[in-house]
Design a protein around this nucleic acid. Structure first.
Lengths: 220, 220
DNA sequence: CGTCCGGTTGAACACGCGTTTAGCGTACTA
DNA sequence: TAGTACGCTAAACGCGTGTTCAACCGGACG
């Protein structure tokens, strides 16, 4: 294994555990090299970060290739089990979402795409209700699930101990499964009056993908 | 208005716009004072941050006192309109959630409490379906809505321009209303088999608040 | 008038940061 | 075997940070 790769992997771990504010010296120490070498290999700290992003994204793509082969709850469970194995990656990704930067957005868009396809499949097989706007629903579900998970993890961290993502995610699942299933099967509202009222709106009709009603002062 | 308060308010604005990494000198400049005076008044940068947290929390509590008087969608709309007025506070709170520290957790717990009461009221008046575990549902809804909002805002920011929270939140609302209403009135799953399967589980029964079935190797 | 005291400043200090530079050793190459 | 390119280190540089310190200024009080 080349020294360059060792430094990169150490950086991913350290960044994931202590945030992107960590100094080059700490990364160098973790990799067992001198601070100058880090710069010599990656040009700058930002260059190192960019290469970490790239590497993480590449691993995710490879990993997704086999995860896609078994979609649905079974695949999700498998992915959850894999978390223990890929803990440093998960930590890095979470930090990346919190700190902004392209990685988070890129991963998010991939997740939206995957969710879209998974929901389409579910609708086709009858295991998921159809939606008036499948794209908006997929984006909504991704945004809410990812956002909630990030907030949960971040509120759990707080201490300087690196946080065990595997148990944290399991805890989140046990906290959330019942209300989520309730919501998914029974909804929250007892009747459809609110939804109908919104669909009668211009915005509602437009969002539903139907032809919006003619506006009072629009041409024609 | 005392200089101390001016420095504090300037710090809230600057922290909110540029993050907690901003230097003491920038805050001092924004307040029109010298860097040394900031330390003289608040002891340290952390002391300043603590006083900002305290002040923000106090304002929120005062504001909540009148917001609670008009709960429901009307109150929410009013709160949304007030955002323009309290933009610096909102920015500071968002930063506070992202950076960790007590303020975020404290506000979150308050929101869970408010949501609990609001849902109770809705159930009593028949505008919200009852839940097997109201506390878990309130926590779930708060976690998901706050988390999604934070993620949305953070993905929108990215540039160094301070970001207009009012329009961003409006955009989020238009993106999310249709799928959220669909989900709230119709759910996602076409039948209750998954929920029933979970309720038949030990965990499911425990989460639902009912007496869990006797475990095979438990006493008695 | 003299004195004191709190608010305020500007310069300075110590430190950690990312980065640069000079040089060492080693392994390949002609 | 001499030459050379490369991986690597140790030390230093410049900068920005939070914080400290001595001095100053203006008003209140004896």
């Amino acid at each position: 294994m080349t020294t360059r790769a060792r430094v990169r992997d150490a950086a991913i771990t350290v960044f994931g555990n202590h945030g992107f504010g960590t100094g080059v010296r700490a990364i160098a120490t973790a990799a067992g090299v001198s601070p100058g070498l880090v710069i010599h290999h990656f040009g700058s700290k930002d260059g190192l970060r960019a290469e970490c992003d790239e590497h993480v994204l590449r691993i995710i793509r490879e990993q997704k290739a086999e995860a896609v082969s078994t979609p649905g709850p079974a695949g999700a469970m498998q992915a959850l089990a894999d978390i223990e194995q890929y803990a440093p990656l998960v930590a890095y990704i979470v930090r990346s979402f919190q700190a902004g930067g392209g990685l988070g957005e890129s991963l998010f868009e991939h997740m939206v795409e995957d969710t879209t396809q998974y929901l389409e499949l579910g609708v086709a097989t009858g295991s998921v209700r159809p939606s008036r706007n499948p794209a908006a629903r997929a984006r909504y579900l991704t945004l809410y699930n990812v956002g909630a998970m990030l907030l949960y993890l971040q509120m759990r961290a707080d201490k300087e101990v690196p946080l065990d993502y595997a148990t944290a995610i399991r805890d989140l699942a046990t906290d959330v499964t019942l209300p989520a299933l309730e919501m998914y099967t029974e909804g929250l509202l007892p009747d459809s009056s609110m939804l109908e009222a919104y669909l009668a709106t211009e915005d509602g009709a437009a969002q539903a993908g139907a032809a919006p009603p003619v506006h009072t002062d629009s041409p024609n």
